[in-house]
């Protein structure tokens, strides 16, 4: 098996408060993993730590990505190495056009891969193709990044970036929250179009609904900063029916 991400005993704190208490997780190329859990369980912290958020302090443990120690890499180096985080709350950046950001990001990543910059025509063609797939108005490309976008437009914009940048490891942080069923399908189609045996996906979600459209290979439950249960797609359905409380109590009981 080709292990893309290997996390061992990961402990993380935010502003002095311990959030993750020893996470172990391995993801192979070609797999889709879902991390589910109640609010406040540390899901977003986990997603952002993987992308290199500096405010989060890794107290213990290791993360290896494609054999490399990820913890020594800056966020931009992680992005260039093929890691992509779709944000739970995409940031508005007035004054920077969406298309400019896409182009700059893509060229930085291509440079890392040893590829030439995409010429303007090829770039535009690709952007337009993906914009159409995300059922986004092309006008949004020329607006400032996420500025004044609706919640759904922001989430689609994240997946548009995902499609353009073609990461090896995509982390989707609650991309499904706030989306209606049509938008959810569009987002899922975008993600599914990129699935192949070289890439891996980590879906962080509160709801089982997303997993009807992007079928995971593995489901893990994160509660009180630990992965308390892992299983196949059927675990998501069980959570949908039983809720999280039965697992949450077990996790709290296990906390030293």
């Amino acid at each position: 098996m080709n292990t893309l991400l290997r996390i061992k005993n990961l402990h993380v704190s935010v502003e002095g408060k311990a959030i993750l208490h020893g996470i172990d997780l391995s993801i192979n190329a070609g797999e889709v993993h879902a991390i589910m859990g109640p609010n406040g369980s540390g899901k977003s912290t986990f997603a952002q730590v993987l992308a290199g958020r500096e405010q989060f302090e890794v107290l213990q443990g290791s993360i290896h990505y494609a054999g490399e120690n990820l913890l020594t890499l800056s966020p931009e180096k992680r992005a260039r190495a093929g890691i992509f985080l779709a944000f739970q709350y995409p940031v508005e950046i007035p004054g920077v056009s969406n298309v400019y950001l896409l182009k700059t990001a893509l060229n930085a990543i291509r440079k890392q891969r040893g590829e030439a910059e995409l010429d303007a025509m090829d770039f535009l063609e690709r952007v337009k193709q993906h914009t159409a797939m995300m059922q986004m108005d092309e006008e949004l490309l020329y607006r400032s990044v996420n500025a004044g976008f609706s919640g759904g437009e922001k989430k689609r914009n994240e997946i548009l970036q995902l499609l353009m940048l073609e990461p090896r490891l995509a982390i989707l942080d609650e991309t499904d929250s706030g989306l209606d069923i049509d938008a959810l399908q569009v987002v899922a189609n975008g993600v599914n179009s990129l699935r192949d045996d070289t890439r891996a996906f980590l879906l962080v979600t509160h709801y089982q609904r997303l997993l009807d459209y992007i079928r995971p290979d593995f489901v893990h439950v994160l509660a009180a900063g630990r992965l308390v249960k892992s299983g196949g797609p059927e675990l998501a359905l069980e959570l949908e029916q039983r809720g999280y409380s039965w697992l949450k109590e077990a996790a709290v009981a296990a906390t030293p």
Binding site: S74, P75, E76, R78, A79, L85, V91, P94, G95, T104
Partner: peptide, 30 residues
Amino acid sequence: LDADALFYLRSRALDRESARNLLVYAFAAD
């Protein structure tokens, strides 16, 4: 400078300096 915006740009492969300059430029260009 907005730390969230800086992280967002860096997570999109822009190095720290480019991200910072882009945000400052955008702030003024407006």
